[in-house]
Design a binder for these strands. Structure first.
Lengths: 137, 137
DNA sequence: TGCTTACTCTATTAAATTAATAGGATAATA
DNA sequence: TATTATCCTATTAATTTAATAGAGTAAGCA
């Protein structure tokens, strides 16, 4: 299941991507338009800034803005920051690999095999989509 | 992330599917071979029986056994019972549809659009695999 | 019949994760 | 220097997941 954090983060990014002007947008505006708890959204936007997706400006006229063009932002990168590993088990994760404690041998693990296919299917979707593709005309 | 319940459930099903004999296999044997808490596995196998994947036999020589041939068991069905919806948000779920509380209109929702693609990619994998495909020679 | 075996069922608890909230600190603008 | 809006840390609430406990039931067999 997609966490609220990811859901809200995606909505906020799409909101920023759909702005004509590149001027900073306030948290309160995004929270209001997208029905998101403002305080919760604060922490999400903060983490998106720290991972290099957003820039921010304090004080009057301040807010958040996209650093890159929407079509330069891969969904793989966004999802990894918001939701964590794309793989459903650490033993098939590209960026967060970890051996399973209960599994003596990955090559003979039935779960590993299936989850590898699932990971690849998901990667394909996320790699072929950017923030620009999320925007609804 | 895949829950332990699902992981253990898949391993147990694969274990049963790989049996030459169709004789019932005891919980304790599966738990031991797959490094699973026996009590936890009990409840998982019980739910797999109640959803029609497994049969059981009590008493001496008892245990669990597959009802269908492994190649007749679609992973879509298994995953829905063990893990729940395949979709990452209820608003794109085929079998567990629900409207999002925070989202006024699905057609104009950026998350909905992406998650629809993800769902389809996952469905494709699960539909093209059966329990028989999980077995490692 | 009575003993053993192994699944059945309910309830509880522990642990971990997620979601939300509170409140003050900091920086930019006018 | 007052106002605005992000920044940061800490805490709490809620939910979900994982594990455990223990008594109950049915089947097989001597």
């Amino acid at each position: 299941m997609l966490s609220k954090k990811t859901k809200y983060g995606l909505k906020a990014l799409a909101y920023l991507a759909s702005q004509k002007e590149k001027a900073p947008v306030q948290i309160s505006e995004i929270a209001k338009c997208e029905n998101i708890s403002q305080k919760f959204l604060e922490s999400i936007l903060l983490s998106l800034r720290k991972s290099g997706f957003l820039g921010s400006k304090k004080g009057k006229g301040g807010g958040y803005y996209l650093i890159k063009e929407p079509n330069q932002v891969l969904m793989t990168d966004v999802m990894r920051v918001l939701e964590g590993p794309i793989a459903m088990v650490p033993c098939v994760s590209l960026n967060f690999y970890e051996k399973c404690a209960d599994c003596p041998d990955e090559a003979s693990c039935s779960v590993n095999k299936l989850m590898l296919m699932v990971r690849d299917a998901n990667l394909e979707v996320y790699r072929n989509n950017t923030l620009a593709d999320l925007i609804i005309s």
